[in-house]
Design a protein around this nucleic acid. Structure first.
Lengths: 153, 153
DNA sequence: TTTGTGTAGTTGCATAAACAACTATATGCC
DNA sequence: GGCATATAGTTGTTTATGCAACTACACAAA
């Protein structure tokens, strides 16, 4: 349906996602200024573990929209920094359950505050209604592309 | 202004940009299926060169929202693949002007068609009005974060 | 029990990003 | 001219991504 009305020059920012890059960079900078030595990617994993600890790596793949090798290495690095621990599942020996350390738990409040601050900076002057529509569009885009057999590969 | 109405659980997709990631992956896949051995990042540089050849690396930095090392290495790889050539500027010997080879010129039509196809897949079921608003939001986010002295670094 | 198939996770390789430190050239001011 | 400063580009290091190939375990069917 939305075919010829979408001009090529404007297509580009959709594909490259410069807005989300800018948010990520700002959040990273805000972390650094607060002395928090965690990358945005690592934080995005912690974010899901704060919501629910003890998830498998596969669950983290689904939650963070990453493939298995990416999660393996993010968990590697988080383990090096003593922020998470791999605990083998007793029911299924293939599975690692990922648990947070005290250090990681203590990061939650501060980093979530910084994330909210960053988002507020980013969304200044944008109305609730616009945000809702933007979210719907992004979700629809994601769904459109995920339903085809791409992510199965 | 948009402060407490933005729920944390929804914040996440904004920051991680999974929609734009999905578009990029789909476009990459469409390239590959057509036998085009160019990464999305390389393509995004070519895209700006098709619009105007002979840009400096710094201009490509600004156009593609990347830092200088990133462009140096993307141009390195594009040169290896014989898609672009560095030509030292005669007026300012610090500057490399980047020109396209015949191979790169011949890629334009096919890859732009694939990019449009990919976008149409992504935006199926999204109305023009929604797209306009989403673009405005993303542009506003980008502007909000770029106006502060971050990209200067 | 064996065999096949699917799932969870890891490793290797290539590409790319962010950041810092560096070289070379240009430019403006004394 | 000579010096300070800014700009264009490169290189090194760390982290992350995508893809392919691999190991280990689970489960079901013969």
């Amino acid at each position: 349906m939305p075919n010829n009305q979408f001009k090529k020059g404007e297509l580009y920012s959709f594909i490259t996602g410069k807005a989300s890059t800018a948010i990520a960079r700002r959040l990273q900078k805000n972390f650094k200024q607060s002395g928090i030595e965690v990358t945005i990617e690592q934080w995005s994993v912690l974010y899901h573990l704060w919501k629910q600890e003890g998830q498998s790596q596969q669950q983290l793949c689904d939650a963070t929209f990453r493939d298995k090798p990416s999660i393996t290495r993010l968990v590697d690095n988080l383990e090096k920094q003593k922020l998470v621990k791999r605990v083998p599942s007793k029911e299924d020996r293939r599975i690692n359950l990922i648990y947070l350390t005290k250090e990681a738990l203590s990061l939650q409040e501060k980093t979530m505050a910084l994330a909210n601050k960053t988002l507020n900076e980013a969304l200044e002057g944008v109305t609730n209604g616009q945000i809702e529509i933007a979210k719907e569009v992004l979700q629809k885009v994601y769904d459109n592309l995920s339903n085809l057999p791409l992510t199965d590969l």
